[in-house]
Design a protein around this nucleic acid. Structure first.
Lengths: 228, 228
DNA sequence: GTCTATAGCTTGATAGAC
DNA sequence: GTCTATCAAGCTATAGAC
């Protein structure tokens, strides 16, 4: 803004090379498993350049989120608005589910290493110490609350606990089919292909939509501690 | 077996103190984030004792799985057998879902630090480099294949891909409500309590059972890339 | 902006006294 | 079995030449 868009020759390219390598290494090894050296090696730059451009390891990490997060936020917002205009209730449920799932898989498909960002997200979500970094709190919490409110509107007779657990179920399910750790291919004997983002997204959306629509409230009275 | 059960005075207690501390630290910080020193401090033993009893860091890590995994396996097996004897199809679906979910939450509730093991599991599942450790391949893959086969039997008209993605969806959903990273409480304003294992388990089981039973095959023909 | 060199610390693991 | 002392390797981050 203040500084008019300079043509930074290769300076820009270096930052992007580092960001891209970091995304890959953080995704594969996690925040603690990744090292500045490994990232620098993969980016083919000296380690010092990372600190010059991003300040610190956590600074680099945050830059990855800063890059990919706004698009997710915007697309989810659009998805929720689209759902609001849908008159048919059944289709509205599906649209809310898609508002959560589709932007994430869209990123995977669109970006060259979108799968890496998906891995980073999944790890961040399952990392209690990640709360300290506060990334989710700053970036995803606002849209998450909107999602939760949208679910509550769809099912006005649900308790707040039911609504929230439903959201966590959806979020977890999305992560489950987004991980791509090699195990899915192994277990399925190749029948389920992690690289087929559209198929993966479609299957989660289908099951989650059905699960929300047909959630049987009477089951809530039952017992879980049945032997099994 | 060969060695008759000796009463090892406190030797046994030390190993268990380390194991318990390791479970907690690994759960909170992950494999790479955890350090031998932090574990030793929490267990209140010198670092060298960990290497004496477990050989290495990864040896200690594997010992954690060796301790908690067989119970999960057995209970899932029993759950699947129970499902097989159920004549009512709808109830059978629910029993298969419970065979996956209930043992995990049962462990959380029963064991003092069962939540820590849940965290470790979730991280191991979302860690591509964990495949190198081979823990899932050795411990959970056999029962996972049985679960997948059970789903396939329940829905004979599904493709193998659909069956496998359904399993991954279920697994992810379970992780999603099992993580307990503090975010669930924050987003729900306390309405969803991660410590209430029974409630959490019940909500996932309910949604997943409904999702499987009412999965609409006709949706599979639809498009995912609709703008959302 | 780029790079080499290195400071200052923490890591996993072990040697060897008890 | 337990513990202190220590090693070699690897870590993040920075100083300073270009």
């Amino acid at each position: 803004m203040a500084q008019p868009e300079r043509l930074e020759k290769q300076g820009d390219s270096t930052k992007e090379k580092i960001l891209s390598a970091a995304e890959s290494v953080f995704g594969k090894l996690g925040f603690d498993g990744a090292t500045m050296r490994k990232i620098a090696t993969q980016a083919d730059v000296p380690v010092a350049l990372i600190n010059y451009h991003f300040g610190s390891k956590v600074g680099l990490y945050r830059a990855i989120f800063a890059k990919s997060t706004p698009a997710i936020y915007d697309q989810r917002l659009v998805g929720l608005q689209l759902a609001r205009t849908e008159p048919d209730w059944e289709k509205r449920v599906e649209l809310v589910v898609k508002a959560l799932i589709v932007p994430m898989f869209g990123l995977r498909a669109r970006q060259s290493n979108g799968a890496d960002f998906g891995r980073i997200l999944a790890r961040e979500l399952t990392d209690p110490s990640a709360e300290g970094r506060g990334i989710f709190r700053e970036t995803f919490d606002p849209i998450a609350r909107m999602m939760i409110d949208a679910i509550a509107e769809l099912f006005p007779d649900w308790t707040r606990a039911e609504v929230n657990w439903a959201y966590q179920t959806m979020l977890g399910a999305m992560m489950g089919v987004m991980i791509d750790n090699g195990r899915i291919a192994r277990l399925s004997g190749g029948d389920a292909d992690s690289d087929d983002h559209e198929a993966a997204a479609l299957h989660v959306v289908t099951i989650l939509t059905a699960g929300l629509k047909h959630r049987d409230r009477r089951m809530t009275a039952g017992d879980t501690d049945r032997e099994a």
